[in-house]
Nucleic acid binder design. Structure first.
Lengths: 142, 142
DNA sequence: GTCTGTGCAAACGCTTTGCAGACGG
DNA sequence: CCGTCTGCAAAGCGTTTGCACAGAC
């Protein structure tokens, strides 16, 4: 847990209650993708009230420090996840919101060569698929 | 041009000035990606003033009618492009905003099999790459 | 003690909506 | 003429910001 303290200090961030709480929140759910509102609510559940402004500020700082990754799914709101190294892409269930991660070296390589062909130096990329997961398909009418 | 009239009628939309103007605007720039604000400004340049509310409504209707495609690049604002059939993906220049389109059957196929492996029925997908285009690279300092 | 971090509320940018009047079929 | 479409302004939503106070070091 002191790891977290070091991670903050390394990034020139003072070690404060809100920052630790938010960091712990993400580490407790390493696979989850949380919006600012999700963070606010989850902290409330633990009887920790942190102003939304602070949450937005901390999330932005964590993204800049590469502690978190930010995504914009088509929902209109930004979601964050813990940066566990290793790039991956996402499949989002449009019914239940479940997010499945995957990584395809082949796709990555194809992307690189396409970018090269078009003369771009790529700094970032995002591949999102939207669909219905196994579970939700069972509740669909035919 | 009467094609446009038919296209509107086919979708149960009355043929009105604003709708025709907006449709013509996109057809005059078939490769361009325009935000609601872009549409507003471009029409103003032609001395056509259409309220922003109407623009948003028309763009939404056109998207539902499959006349336009909507994208959310990381800029925070939605952009629309003419639906010319044939799926393609995008590379966006983070310096100048230029959008380059590409299509890779191989990537599409890989996506399909990944979705299948994970039990998803895919309804949509988006692949965006962000980088610096050839031209903008020339103005970078080393 | 100094300088950064926080909370609040107000402002923000993009988008949507309610309503009264205009217009297409 | 009826039903849809439009413009305006107000509201909506997620996010950002200004400011005074609190807290880390």
């Amino acid at each position: 847990m002191d790891n977290n303290v070091a991670q903050l200090k390394d990034n020139g961030l003072k070690v404060t209650g809100p920052r630790l709480k938010i960091l712990e929140l993400f580490e407790a759910r390493p696979e989850q993708h949380l919006s600012a509102e999700d963070v606010y609510r989850l902290l409330l559940d633990e009887n920790v009230e942190i102003g939304v402004a602070t949450i937005y500020r901390v999330l932005t700082q964590f993204e800049q420090a590469n502690i978190l990754l930010r995504h914009h799914f088509e929902t209109g709101k930004a979601v964050y996840e813990l940066n566990r190294g290793g790039h991956h892409d996402h499949i989002v269930c449009i019914k239940c919101g479940r997010v499945t991660e995957f990584c395809s070296e082949q796709i990555e390589d194809l992307q690189k060569s396409i970018a090269k062909e078009n003369g771009y130096r790529i700094v970032d990329h995002a591949l999102y698929m939207y669909g219905v997961c196994t579970e939700c398909q069972q509740f669909e009418q035919h």
